[in-house]
Design a protein around this nucleic acid. Structure first.
Lengths: 148, 148
DNA sequence: GCAAAATAGGGGCATATGCGCATAATAGCC
DNA sequence: GGCTATTATGCGCATATGCCCCTATTTTGC
């Protein structure tokens, strides 16, 4: 019977996440600007560099992203010749791979990204940031809408 | 010097946030679907219900959102006659307010939202969720790109 | 009182996000 | 070997996000 029985929308987990994401997107895009790639594009290029070529669907799942979203996020990268999409052995699949220009771009972007990381962790605390990432990874890894 | 001197992109704070946001958006939109509003729209309507009419710029700042983004997020809500935008006394400003239909909609959406909250906190832990929100609020409240 | 500065907002451009439907291609059954 | 189920993907529609430039309005300076 306390007033806390019906939690008010001010404590919405989704709203808190979205607001923090918008704020952090500002920060990372600001630092990454000289490299010409956005935060989302950085993630894609960095993953390709670390793991090598992979099909769209596989990367989409790893990124917790809709396949069609990733496919369209790739379009500006393809226009700029940073990634190439080629048919795989299984011709239903299409492999994404870094071009030489894409490799050069991600390597130029890496120190900028590190500066964004440091800037954030200087403001927020390195240990706190690590705890935050751990929590977020757990959220991202859980099939929330399903039965699991 | 250990190999940890150059942190790898796998520990990107922004990527972790985006992935968790995508996952949580799935969850909340799934639960909110019967009400016909998305998570973002729910936040807007809920805020209007709690705080009363307010100008676009003021809400945008409170939501850590670009003014133009909020203005466009309002368009589908205006089309559905859930909110109305009227000129203020200072005719540069435009006041957003809930319509009767908007009030009915947010009140119908509230129990659905609570179910989403409960679902999340059942999977993730209520205390953990509270800690997560506290961290995210701190991130959202900080002027990260600026000097502060 | 009028010109300049400041403020609130809109529209264009580009990216990011995901659902539903359609298409292409492989795998499996018989 | 051809029909069917499965899989990988694309495309249209709609929302979400933010930057830059422009317009409208108020405030300020003189």
């Amino acid at each position: 019977m306390s007033t806390a029985a019906k939690p008010p929308p001010e404590i919405c987990n989704l709203l808190a996440l979205r607001q923090a994401t918008r704020r952090l997107t500002q920060l990372y895009d600001h630092f990454l600007a000289p490299s010409g790639v956005r935060g989302t594009q950085f993630s894609i290029l960095a993953r390709l560099k670390a793991r090598g070529p992979m099909p769209i669907g596989e990367m989409a799942e790893a990124m917790v992203m809709d396949r069609t979203t990733l496919a369209r996020n790739l379009m500006p990268l393809r226009r700029q010749r940073l990634v190439a999409v080629t048919p795989g052995v299984d011709r239903r699949r299409r492999e994404i791979r870094l071009t030489d220009k894409g490799l050069a771009t991600i390597e130029a972007a890496l120190p900028l990204w590190r500066r964004a990381q440091h800037h954030f962790e200087a403001r927020y605390g390195g240990g706190e940031a690590e705890r935050l990432r751990a929590m977020l990874r757990e959220v991202a890894a859980t099939e929330l809408a399903g039965g699991g």
